[in-house]
């Protein structure tokens, strides 16, 4: 896990989450911007997965429990897919709110993953 990538990711997820919540409560249906933000969060999670697989080979091993780390990471990877699927099936403002909730949940999960990797067991 790379610390600056995590900071970028949490920042993007929080900002995207607030944007989706605001637009959703303002009555907007999911659009290219809100779906794009969620897609960006997903791409960053895939980057996180690649970094987590590669890091131990260059001497950056997790201080905490790898099984717990990957359970969080895989759960987080599923969320945007589910949220976007919902947004495509049901084009109402509630889907935009849901995209926001998904982004904020991912921000919390990535923060927790950071704690597992760097702090826990150290």
């Amino acid at each position: 896990m790379i610390e600056w990538l995590t900071i970028v990711q949490v920042a993007v997820a929080v900002a995207g989450g607030i944007l989706c919540l605001a637009l959703g409560f303002a009555g907007r249906k999911p659009n290219d911007y809100t779906l794009g933000v969620v897609a960006l969060v997903e791409v960053l999670l895939v980057a996180q997965l690649i970094s987590a697989i590669v890091s131990p080979f260059v001497g950056n091993t997790p201080s905490g429990d790898p099984l717990e780390f990957y359970t969080y990471l895989i759960s987080a990877l599923l969320l945007p897919a589910a949220g976007v699927f919902w947004a495509l099936v049901e084009r109402t403002r509630w889907s935009t709110v849901i995209l926001g909730v998904v982004c904020l949940a991912i921000a919390v999960m990535v923060y927790r993953m950071n704690v597992i990797w760097f702090v826990q067991g150290a």
């Binding site: 969080y72 849901i98 949940a105």
Partner: peptide
């Protein structure tokens, strides 16, 4: 719908843990 999503996330978190 929001309730369903929060339930879903809780279910996912509890299952994983």
């Amino acid at each position: 719908r929001l309730l369903v999503v929060v339930y879903g996330i809780l279910a996912l978190g509890a299952t994983g843990r």
